[in-house]
């Protein structure tokens, strides 16, 4: 069974796009975007990660189950970060020390 094969051209193009995005993330880091620097950095990193996943890791041929597996990992990670941060950020609200 011959599997799907990605052409060399696509691989090289994606590589150069990734290098370009790396340059972009460095450039953006030196611009003052106020509180937006971190979200932009994470967004660019996520874009790069998706390119690696879809092209290099061949997930565009992947089965739904594989997507589901990967997505569940990200989902539970966001859950861990989200609920921990929900605690940390709402700690001062009551005005009672230590609560």
């Amino acid at each position: 069974m011959a599997s799907h094969v990605t052409s060399r051209l696509v691989l090289f193009v994606i590589f150069f796009v990734l290098v370009g995005l790396t340059a972009l993330t460095v450039w953006v880091a030196y611009q003052d975007l106020g509180s937006w620097n971190a979200p932009v950095a994470v967004a660019i990193a996520t874009l790069k990660a998706m390119l690696v996943i879809v092209i290099f890791m061949e997930m565009r041929f992947g089965q739904p189950l594989t997507w589901f597996a990967g997505a569940s990992g990200v989902l539970f990670l966001l859950l861990l970060i989200g609920m921990t941060m929900a605690d940390a950020m709402s700690r001062g609200w009551l005005g009672v020390p230590g609560k």
Binding site: M83, A86, D87, S90, R91, W93, L94, G98, K99
Partner: peptide, 11 residues
Amino acid sequence: STQSVYAAMVF
């Protein structure tokens, strides 16, 4: 613990 009351309510 010092977990916020609001988080505690959700949990």
